[in-house]
Design a binder for these strands. Structure first.
Lengths: 143, 143
DNA sequence: GGTTGACCTTACCACCGCTGGAACCTTTAT
DNA sequence: ATAAAGGTTCCAGCGGTGGTAAGGTCAACC
């Protein structure tokens, strides 16, 4: 299959696939006699792996590691597990932040009239509190 | 207060604050006689607003809009509410994806022996399933 | 066989949201 | 007076992606 089909099947744009190849994240694809990149099911599998692991906000470096481990079956599972656990805790952090944000936003939407008056309190409240407790700040507003 | 202090108080690096000023996200700060940027409580307030709204993966364009609305009290709250709602649904999407990822990873970690054997199934499983149902894929593994 | 149109190739340049560095100036502490 | 800590500007780069250009290749149709 050509790159377009592989892109469709994996969810990664053709451009990005070439980029991944350039930067060594994936090995160079085989070429047809005419120079077209040729992919098979295994390649798509790998691309999907990447696509899956690449949720927005995560570094490609992590995926590179994950991928390397995945492809090197001689490694001890302990290493893999440790990596996965690290990834997991990062994920949890991100989740917590997003949840806090979501909660605040939902709360504020609920308190916004949504009419023509200019005094919707949403953004004032949104501005008032910080997500991370780096500095102690006054009254936390989201329950 | 100088930029460093404002950075500390807002959680945004000084460098990034300058960048925000350059790109017009925030207005140019007042300057001291010697050219230092000077910030007050209100500025920090704004910066915290930005820091708070800027969770990883969200476009700065959204924040620009939010900020513009926040600072223009003459707008109808309906507009603000609509924007907040849109932001909320985006957030929910992101949350769902992260949760799915988290669930899968947790499941796999639980099934990994974590010893010296090279057959930890984590990554194979991780590679096996796609997050988005773009193409029908075989047996979905995460419950 | 010839032509069309979709797809592929490389190569470059630009963007976004930062981040780091260089070179220099100002404030503060000793 | 001097050193350190902070500020200033500007320039360059990153990852990841989109756009463009100039061209080669493939399948289908007349």
């Amino acid at each position: 299959m050509n790159i377009g089909e592989a892109a469709q099947a994996s969810g990664i744009p053709a451009k990005t696939i070439r980029y991944y190849e350039d930067t060594g994240l994936i090995p160079a694809a085989d070429r047809s006699r005419s120079g077209y990149r040729v992919y098979d099911g295994r390649d798509v599998h790998t691309l999907r792996f990447i696509h899956r692991a690449r949720e927005p906000g995560s570094s490609v470096q992590d995926i590179r590691k994950l991928l390397a481990l995945w492809q090197d079956r001689t490694r001890a599972s302990a290493e893999v597990k440790a990596l996965a656990l690290a990834h997991l805790s990062e994920l949890d952090e991100k989740l917590a932040k997003l949840k806090a944000m979501r909660r605040t936003l939902a709360h504020l939407v609920a308190h916004c009239e949504g009419d023509h008056r200019p005094d919707c309190p949403i953004l004032d409240d949104l501005a008032g509190e910080a997500a991370e407790p780096l500095q102690g700040n006054g009254g936390l507003r989201f329950n």
